[in-house]
């Protein structure tokens, strides 16, 4: 089980790294926002994975709150890009 979890964790971390490359490199601001959106979804999944690794149910609550805050953040960025703020 733990060796499978190591493989899964490295795949997910690699995914976060790829999204971060898009955030750094993206030619326009919406590009960076797309990278951020992807990275936050991956991070939510990663927090749930940590609760599996450490056997702590409390991390699930953290994942829920993180998902809410990430959603609000992306919505705020897109409202700002449209000039509606």
């Amino acid at each position: 089980m733990s060796s499978i979890l190591i493989i899964v964790l490295s795949l997910v971390s690699l995914a976060t790294l790829l999204a971060t490359i898009r955030i750094i490199q993206g030619p326009t601001i919406p590009d960076r926002a797309v990278g951020l959106d992807t990275a936050t979804t991956i991070t939510t999944a990663m927090i749930v994975l940590f609760s599996q690794i450490f056997h702590r149910a409390i991390y699930l609550d953290i994942a829920l709150v993180y998902a809410v805050l990430a959603f609000l953040g992306v919505i705020a960025i897109s409202r700002y890009l449209e000039g509606g703020m």
Binding site: T28, I29, P30, A33, V34, D37, T41, T44, V48, S51, A57, L60, D61, A63, L64, A67, V68, F71, V74, I75, I77, S78, R79, L81, E82, G83
Partner: peptide
């Protein structure tokens, strides 16, 4: 943990398309 993970995934299922929709419109309008 089944119910709690269910709530988290339901939330992701509802909000992820909405945020990408808002971003797409913002990208087109900017």
């Amino acid at each position: 943990w089944f119910f709690k993970t269910g709530i988290i995934s339901l939330f992701i299922l509802l909000t992820n398309p909405v945020s990408s929709n808002a971003l797409a419109r913002a990208a087109h309008n900017s």
